[in-house]
């Protein structure tokens, strides 16, 4: 069956689609990188895997969709990007303080179940509020596309890529040059030593959660301008993209996650063009599980008793 579908388009035909796929991959790669950086930050500093990463992104997406339709498309995403970033930052800080801080020293099982519980709560609250159908924003602020040498870039996607890069730049500048950023990095290196040095690690973990989720707040707002939102499918696929990117980049490394995110976008888009477009997700999952299984260094010894 697979061969049959492939046979329909000649190799030359498929190769001619590569430039377009490359451009799409770059644009999507940046937003994947942003989402993955958020996950990696929380993972690397607080040593917690946030299974609900995609669900938090869903919140930003629904806020964007509701504001857009509620105000007749008048509310610009330019305003919503910082607003959602702030909203998700607060949610992230609160999530840490109210929930995650209670399971920081708990068995790994309890940590997995805590963020899985958040998956259920957020996703099915969203389903309850927004209904089981896909929501999409029509005629939003960004429209049209630019054609260049036969390669088309839709404006919403291009803007998403650019703003994602800017957000990543801000995040890195913050981590690198501010006092708080240094405290975050110190806490990631050694929690206890940081504590001895007078760093309020609980506050730092809260900030880390805030920053990590602010990243998906930005990404969610942007992606919602062109991509349909489904309460069950959307968060699952984004969480997995982020997991795959983080796995590729070496667990817990923010810079690695950025590289991983871009790589995942290439796997997805080139796989779709060269192999079969209907298995896009599958290539990501396969790379993800492949990395988990074949690159166990850094995986094996973490968290061992």
């Amino acid at each position: 069956m697979l061969e049959l579908e492939l046979g329909l388009i000649s190799l030359g035909g498929r190769l001619s689609l590569v430039p377009q796929a490359t451009v799409t991959a770059v644009v999507f790669g940046f937003v994947y990188a942003l989402v993955a950086a958020g996950l990696a930050l929380i993972w690397g500093v607080a040593d917690i895997v946030n299974f609900a990463h995609g669900e938090y992104m869903l919140i930003a997406m629904y806020v964007t969709a509701f504001v857009a339709s509620g105000f007749g498309g008048g509310a610009s995403p330019v305003v919503l990007v910082p607003l959602n970033a702030a909203l998700l930052f607060v949610l992230g800080y609160a999530t840490y303080r109210l929930i995650i801080s209670k399971v920081m020293d708990a068995p790994m099982l309890a940590q997995i179940f805590a963020t899985f519980a958040l998956v259920l709560i957020i996703r099915y609250s969203a389903l309850f509020v927004a209904g089981p159908t896909t929501v999409s924003i029509d005629n939003y602020v960004f429209e049209g596309q630019t054609q260049l040498a036969g390669i088309a870039v839709a404006h919403p996607e291009a803007i998403t890529g650019v703003v994602s890069v800017a957000a990543l730049g801000l995040l890195f500048a913050f981590l690198r040059s501010t006092r708080t950023g240094k405290a975050i990095r110190a806490t990631a290196q050694d929690r206890e030593v940081a504590q001895v040095m007078g760093i309020d690690t609980d506050h730092i973990f809260g900030l880390t959660w805030g920053l990590g989720l602010a990243a998906v707040g930005v990404a969610g707002t942007l992606v919602a301008t062109f991509s349909p939102i489904h309460p069950e499918l959307t968060p699952t696929s984004w969480t997995l993209i982020a997991f795959a990117a983080v796995a590729l980049g070496g667990f817990g490394s923010v810079l690695g996650a950025v590289a991983g995110g871009i790589l995942i976008a290439f796997v997805e888009n080139l796989g779709a063009v060269l192999l079969n477009p209907s298995y896009k997700e599958l290539y990501v999952f396969v790379v993800f599980i492949g990395v988990l299984l074949l690159k166990p260094e850094g995986v094996l010894n973490r968290g061992d008793a």
């Binding site: 929930i99 708990a106 609250s125």
Partner: peptide, 30 residues
Amino acid sequence: GTQTGLGYVIFGVVLLFISMYRPGGILNRY
């Protein structure tokens, strides 16, 4: 309709409280 999702919200909350306060479940091995 969409209200059926509420069952999972309830279980999310239950799961959350179990993981925070009683990770062993009702019969607590821990």
